[in-house]
Nucleic acid binder design. Structure first.
Lengths: 111, 111
DNA sequence: TCACGACATGAAAACTTCTTCAATTCATGT
DNA sequence: ACATGAATTGAAGAAGTTTTCATGTCGTGA
């Protein structure tokens, strides 16, 4: 029944596939933030930020609560931290592979 | 210098954000596969599969080699396995949260 | 050399997602 | 009651991605 898991996974990764949403999650991984605090850190228009927060809310990756005049967001799935770390490791690995390759190109041809 | 890390991360996740590409990576995580073998498992047109493989090649997540008449693909970054597992855990967690919530709705209101 | 099967490529059409703008909501202070 | 600051929403156009189709390449075997 229901949607195949690989489809759900793809949707999940697509949710993470936007620079603003990554930044939001990284900031929320540190600590809860009000929207205006996020706005200070991320250089986008308020309504764009709201749209991106809405995407994250829809997938239940974050939740919001009102605190007086401000709306505060927090990560609802702590494991996302591991995922972001995991991704960073992979990217660093890939970057190294590429620069090794570039180094090779730098070395005078010995064949 | 260069592209900010959160941008690179977003691109990386976007690469994973497609059902066919997830399936490809899952199959390759098991063992190397020739294109025609992938084609048996994944219900898409050959040229579409090729396009998706090209996306994965561009980001260096997979590499291909020719073996006689076939082209064989393999995962070039083993850590991707962990990432896929990590994602599954998160998704299972989210699914549970939601069905807990549905359960709550099922329980007669006691307030 | 020719034909064939296995893949890859380029380009156009179809589809999604992003960004932006104007309008709206909702709490708070006056 | 009204004005204000904080955030959200809906809608439209711009930008990006996916799918498909026709064509091209590369080995292998006849």
């Amino acid at each position: 029944m229901g949607v195949p898991l690989y489809q759900t996974k793809a949707e999940f990764f697509r949710t993470l596939g936007h620079p603003a949403r990554i930044r939001i999650l990284e900031l929320l991984a540190e600590r809860d933030h009000a929207v205006h605090e996020l706005l200070e850190q991320i250089a986008i228009e308020p309504s764009n930020l709201s749209q991106q927060l809405a995407v994250l809310r829809r997938t239940s990756l974050v939740v919001s609560r009102r605190e007086g005049v401000a709306v505060v967001y927090s990560i609802s799935v702590p494991e996302v931290r591991d995922l972001l770390l995991s991704a960073r490791r992979i990217l660093v690995g890939l970057a190294e592979t590429r620069s090794d390759f570039e180094d090779e190109l730098m070395v005078p041809d010995r064949r």
